[in-house]
């Protein structure tokens, strides 16, 4: 068979997919940090919209605002708010870790730094929960 006869079969191309970000089976600490940072970021973007929408009660006057506040006092909402604090705390602390790494600080210790961020976030959340309930 000469070179012209030879036809390489078309390789099976992997489709680029966002689900690769969620490949749970093979994650190391850094991979979990990446995934959690991305997910918490998206949750916070969603919350930003929600927060601004809820605050539209301010524009509808004192009665509307007081009614909204009364609704916000339910235990379910407060529990969700504790979750929100956890999300913010992790994203903020891991964000600091990412900035440090970008400047070449603590790159070799990135796993330890992840756990520092994680534990600090958990501690802050616990403190906030105590203050809120």
């Amino acid at each position: 068979m000469n070179a012209e006869e030879y036809r390489r079969p078309a390789p099976r191309l992997p489709a680029p997919q966002a689900k690769e970000w969620l490949a749970f089976s093979k994650r190391g600490v850094g991979g979990w940090a990446f995934l959690l940072h991305r997910l918490t970021g998206l949750v916070l973007v969603f919350y930003l919209f929600l927060h601004l929408a809820v605050l539209s009660a301010l524009a509808r006057g004192p009665q509307a605002y007081q009614a909204m506040l009364a609704f916000m006092d339910s235990p379910l909402i407060v529990a969700l708010e504790v979750g929100l604090i956890a999300t913010i705390a992790f994203h903020a602390l891991n964000g600091i870790r990412l900035v440090l790494m970008g400047f070449g600080v603590g790159v070799r210790a990135h796993k330890a730094l992840f756990w520092v961020a994680f534990v600090l976030a958990a501690g802050l959340t616990a403190l906030a929960a105590l203050a809120m309930f």
Binding site: Q66, I88, I96
Partner: peptide
């Protein structure tokens, strides 16, 4: 990176003043 670090401070302030300090801002007034 810069906006993120700024947010750490601004958000801490925002949360403390609006929701935690002295029980938070509880009424429209």
């Amino acid at each position: 990176a810069f906006s993120g670090l700024l947010l750490v401070f601004l958000l801490a302030l925002h949360l403390t003043v609006n929701h935690f300090a002295a029980g938070g801002l509880l009424t429209y007034e």
